[in-house]
């Protein structure tokens, strides 16, 4: 199990992390809007995350911290 921390207000909702996740555990939160007026990225099932950090590596805004 891994822990992902999102700097949510920095997210621009580009969705590149969503595509990068090999287990398809990320989504853009349709019900949330951040300070930048974007639907921010979030993890759907943290328990299933292996902490590969693909999402963080793909994120152009460096908002994801990954711990294992």
């Amino acid at each position: 199990m891994a822990k992902l921390t999102f700097k949510t207000d920095y997210c621009k909702g580009c969705g590149l992390c969503v595509d990068a996740c090999p287990k398809k555990l990320l989504q853009l939160a349709k019900d949330k809007i951040n300070k930048k007026r974007h639907h921010p990225a979030e993890i759907t099932d943290e328990a299933a995350c292996v902490g590969c950090a693909s999402c963080a590596m793909m994120c152009p805004d460096c908002i994801i911290k990954v711990e294992r």
Binding site: A2, Y10, K12, G13, C14, G15, L16, H38, G51, A53, A56, M57, M58, C59, P60, D61, C62, I64, K65, V66, E67, R68
Partner: peptide, 28 residues
């Protein structure tokens, strides 16, 4: 254990780049 975080050589200022622009990746 932290396996991925923003590098020290980048500060905390948000990038002005458009959503999905790869400049941010290259900066990092």
């Amino acid at each position: 254990m932290v396996v991925f975080d923003k590098p020290h050589a980048l500060n905390d200022m948000p990038f002005h780049y458009c959503p999905g622009c790869t400049h941010g990746i290259i900066h990092r």
